[in-house]
Each structure stands twice: as structure tokens, then as C-alpha cells.
Deep mutational scan, measured.
Amino acid sequence: SIVTKIISIVQERQNMDDGAPVKTRDIADAAGLSIYQVRLYLEQLHDVGVLEKVNAGKGVPGLWRLL
């Protein structure tokens, strides 16, 4: 499923980069989806406690990390 793919992308990127959070844009590119589509999935995963959003604010790139 797309959700499983997104989780594995975040996991893979974090492992490659010493646990650093992953940008929404990088996840979207790797999943082959638009940034808006991916954001909806990321928000859902956040709501159920799978991911945390590391930063927030208007015009700030979203950074995500697995919990």
C-alpha cells in the first residue's frame, strides 16, 4: 500500500542520514506522488502516532520522523 511505502521511505532515509528527519518533498519524490497527496498521508500517520512532525510554520518545509 502507499502508506507502507511512505513508512519504508522515511525509515530508509532516516537510516541513511543518522536519524535525521525527512522532508515532505523528498518523501513525495521517492513515492512518485505530489507533495499534497503525501502530506495527507503523513498527517494521517501522525494522527495515529506513527510519525512526528519535527517542525511547523507557514512556508517551512515539513520534516518528519518515525516514532
Rank of each mutant, 00 (worst) to 15 (best):
S1I: 10
S1H: 12
I2P: 03
I2N: 04
V3W: 15
V3K: 12
V3Q: 08
T4A: 14
T4F: 13
K5M: 12
K5N: 06
I6N: 07
I6Q: 00
I7M: 07
I7Q: 02
I7D: 00
S8T: 10
S8L: 12
S8Q: 13
I9F: 15
V10G: 00
Q11A: 13
Q11C: 12
E12S: 09
E12D: 09
R13A: 07
Q14E: 05
N15K: 12
N15T: 11
M16R: 13
M16K: 13
D17N: 15
D17I: 09
D17S: 15
D17P: 06
D18M: 11
D18P: 11
D18L: 10
D18V: 07
G19L: 04
G19A: 05
G19K: 06
A20P: 04
P21G: 15
P21W: 15
V22I: 07
K23P: 13
T24I: 03
R25Q: 12
R25H: 07
R25M: 08
D26V: 08
D26N: 03
D26G: 01
I27R: 01
I27D: 02
A28F: 03
A28I: 02
A28V: 04
A30T: 05
A30M: 08
A30E: 08
A30K: 06
A30C: 06
A30F: 04
A31M: 14
A31S: 08
L33S: 02
S34Y: 04
S34W: 04
S34E: 06
Y36T: 12
Y36D: 11
Q37W: 11
Q37G: 04
Q37T: 12
Q37R: 11
V38D: 00
V38P: 00
R39I: 13
R39L: 15
R39N: 11
L40S: 07
Y41G: 02
Y41D: 00
Y41A: 05
Y41L: 11
Y41T: 04
L42F: 01
E43A: 06
E43N: 10
E43R: 07
Q44K: 14
Q44A: 14
L45R: 00
L45N: 00
H46K: 12
H46E: 10
H46N: 07
H46T: 12
H46D: 02
D47Q: 15
D47S: 14
D47W: 11
D47K: 15
V48P: 00
V48D: 12
G49I: 13
G49K: 04
G49Y: 03
V50Q: 04
V50F: 05
E52L: 06
E52S: 06
E52A: 06
E52D: 05
E52H: 04
K53V: 04
K53S: 04
V54E: 02
V54H: 03
V54P: 01
V54I: 09
N55F: 12
N55S: 12
N55C: 13
A56R: 07
A56W: 08
A56E: 09
G57H: 07
G57W: 05
G57Y: 06
G57L: 05
G57A: 07
K58W: 03
G59Q: 06
G59E: 06
G59R: 06
G59N: 09
V60P: 10
V60N: 13
V60F: 11
P61T: 12
P61V: 10
G62H: 15
W64N: 00
W64C: 03
W64H: 01
W64G: 00
W64F: 01
R65N: 04
R65W: 12
L66P: 02
L66H: 04
L66R: 02
L66D: 02
L67I: 14
L67P: 12
